[in-house]
């Protein structure tokens, strides 16, 4: 039972990530390996804030913002949408500058937990669209393969940046919710319940937003056919930026949720993201419900294999993808229609 609960909490986090991965993949064809870095950045930024330190991720955001602005101006000044690029460039640099200025010189690290969470989100979430602008937008038409290699390269850059910003040691945060509940023989921590609830909520919100809002519909349209979507007025750039914002939001929230349950290190991201990927692959990188379900299964496999055979836990977990691939290769043979 306890194992199931443990697996469920981790599975919920993986499910969130799996959703973000599927979203990013279907809309932009990017296999977004650095998703895990949003988790570690979120968690460690919050951990530093709780120690009363203004995290260096703000500066990272600023640096990325400046690069994005430079790129935007470089390409924008020669295109007819000059005014738009100037606005965007000002946004890219202005927001991080304002944020870091106020954090360093005025507010400092807030003492209140809610404010800490808000500041964390304010730092991490804009990283999503900015990174999209800097790294992926200039090669949006490249093949899946090239985008994947770029994603891996970005993962390395972010991991190196993480080591710079947070150092080699891990961070933990105090639980957002202190309460523990005794249910029969087992203790359920408030935090794990909160994690479950928050992930469910976020999944539901994403799902509804996708189904019912105009933006959501536009994103789905882009996922189906980017040329068609452009014709009806959704630019792939905007769609990509929205996707990455959502991905960063999901990552940061996951990081905040998980950071009090476990210790997070600058290099934790990859493994977490990969576990999300296994879930996403169970959903054939296309189906949201299947992906989420797959991620929950991953959480269970992890919990039970650590119980029975902890030394080979990762080996079992990652080998479990092989039967899935076998099943997929029987049911979804390649039609060869990728470019």
């Amino acid at each position: 039972m306890l194992l199931t609960q443990d697996g469920l909490v981790n599975g919920a986090i993986y499910a969130l990530l799996a959703l973000a991965l599927i979203l990013v993949f279907t809309v932009t064809r990017i296999i977004f390996v650095p998703q895990g870095e949003f988790v570690t950045y979120g968690a460690l930024t919050l951990a530093l804030l709780q120690q009363g330190i203004v995290p260096a991720t703000v500066l990272l955001l600023l640096a990325a913002g400046v690069m994005a602005a430079a790129l935007e101006l470089w390409s924008g000044l020669r295109s007819p949408h000059r005014r738009r690029s100037v606005t965007l460039a000002m946004l890219y640099t202005g927001y991080p500058a304002l944020l870091s200025y106020s954090l360093y010189y005025h507010i400092g690290a807030p003492a209140n937990v809610a404010a800490q969470v808000l500041v964390t989100l304010a730092i991490i979430v804009p990283l999503g669209p900015i990174l999209y602008r800097v790294v992926f937008q200039p090669m949006a038409n490249a093949s899946v393969l090239v985008l994947l290699i770029a994603a891996v390269a970005l993962h390395l850059v972010l991991m190196g940046g993480g080591l710079l910003a947070f150092g080699p040691e891990g961070g933990r945060t105090s639980p957002l919710i202190q309460a523990n509940f005794d249910v029969g023989v087992m203790t359920v921590t408030g935090q794990s319940l909160a994690t479950l609830a928050a992930s469910m909520l976020l999944i539901a919100v994403l799902f509804l937003a996708f189904r019912h809002t105009l933006r959501g519909k536009a994103l789905r349209a882009t996922a189906v056919n980017s040329v068609g979507a452009r014709l009806v007025g959704v630019s792939p750039e905007t769609a990509g930026a929205i996707c990455f914002t959502l991905a960063a939001l999901v990552g940061a929230v996951s990081g905040i949720l998980i950071s009090s349950i476990t210790t997070i290190y600058f290099d934790t991201g990859l493994l977490i993201a990969l576990k999300g990927f296994i879930g996403a692959i169970m959903g054939a990188l296309g189906s949201y419900p299947l992906g989420a379900l797959g991620a929950l299964v991953v959480g269970q496999i992890e919990a039970f294999s650590s119980f029975w055979w902890s030394a080979f836990k990762e080996a079992i977990l990652f080998a479990s993808i092989l039967p899935i691939l076998l099943w997929l290769s029987i049911t979804h043979p390649a039609t060869g229609d990728e470019e």
Binding site: L2, L3, T262, S306
Partner: peptide, 8 residues
């Protein structure tokens, strides 16, 4: 990098 050692 384990996120949980509950099982162990």
């Amino acid at each position: 990098n384990d996120t949980s050692v509950t099982a162990q």
